[in-house]
């Protein structure tokens, strides 16, 4: 399939031979494939072997379009590349919709572990690795087993099973392979089962019927977002420990207030968009 890209609001750059006129061009949005988009013009492109299609309505680079030429087999699919989707899903789930600060997930171990910077970094890194692997595994189970067999009601039990098996398995493997590594990260592996993010990611992927790229991106992005949140929070709490905090606010209350401040600053990422 030849290349085609959205050039600007109304123009598409298409690789191929120039069609005889706008009337033979059939351009649709993939979601509304039965509705033709009006084509106002077609001209040859900047390079030989390409042409530019002008559409009446506004086109968006994030949308999926289908283009074909009546009377020929030529067909183009115009969609953002897998890489673009991946990057935008990661940015969105790590910063704009950070799971800790805007979805409030993973709070249980968030407050427990964010007191020391070292442990925060350790748990953050371990979580990213385990989260991605179990997210992908849950996606495989959902896409090839639960979905096709309409066993969606087993989702909760299946996903918690996958997470538990995975954490337990990873623990055993790391213990056998590298004792030093296990001593350092073993405790974090166990903490991960108390983290709702690891369960929320597959559930969200299943509800949104995500493809592999989105599922992988969400697992990685949520993990990175969690690690970032943990790191920021631990830095702030180490400092607050030195500060004279009123008696009733000591400990958890002030941690929550800090967390609220972070959440407010993360609001600054809203509206950020890539591509």
């Amino acid at each position: 399939m030849a290349e085609a890209t959205v050039l600007n609001d109304h123009e598409l750059l298409v690789e191929g031979t120039l069609p005889i006129g706008p009337e033979v061009i059939r351009l649709v949005r993939a979601d509304d494939a039965d509705i033709l988009i009006d084509i106002t013009g077609v001209k040859s492109g900047p390079e030989p072997g390409s042409f530019i299609v002008t559409a009446a309505e506004t086109l968006s680079g994030q949308d999926h379009y289908l283009l074909n030429i009546a009377g020929s087999d030529a067909a183009w699919s115009i969609a953002p590349s897998a890489m673009a989707i991946l990057v935008s899903v990661i940015i969105s789930s790590a910063l704009i919709n950070n799971f800790v600060f805007t979805r409030y997930l993973g709070l249980c171990c968030f407050f427990g572990v964010s007191r020391k910077r070292d442990t925060a970094i350790g748990l953050g890194l371990t979580y990213v690795v385990v989260g991605v692997l179990s997210g992908v595994m849950a996606w495989v189970v959902q896409t090839f087993a639960l979905g096709p067999l309409s066993l969606d009601f087993l989702q909760i039990i299946a996903f918690i099973g996958i997470v538990a098996c995975f954490v337990q398995g990873a623990d055993m493997i790391v213990k056998k392979l590298n004792r030093v590594l296990h001593q350092k990260f073993g405790i974090f592996l166990m903490l991960i089962t108390t983290n709702c993010i690891i369960l929320a990611v597959p559930l969200l992927n299943a509800t949104n019927e995500a493809g592999f790229t989105e599922a992988f991106g969400l697992s990685l992005g949520s993990g990175l977002g969690f690690a970032l949140a943990l790191f920021l929070m631990s830095c702030a709490r180490e400092r607050v420990d030195m500060a004279p905090v009123p008696r009733v606010f000591q400990g958890l209350p002030v941690a929550f207030i800090l967390c609220g401040l972070f959440a407010m600053s993360f609001l600054g990422f809203s509206g950020l968009s890539f591509f």
């Binding site: 600060f101 805007t102 409030y104 008696r247 009733v248 606010f249 000591q250 958890l252 209350p253 002030v254 941690a255 929550f256 207030i257 967390c259 609220g260 401040l261 959440a263 407010m264 609001l267």
Partner: peptide, 16 residues
């Protein structure tokens, strides 16, 4: 979103 954290923090302080 941020207000939830403040609320819980304040109620915890109240309990204390």
């Amino acid at each position: 979103p941020a207000g939830g954290f403040f609320t819980i923090g304040l109620i915890m302080a109240l309990f204390n």
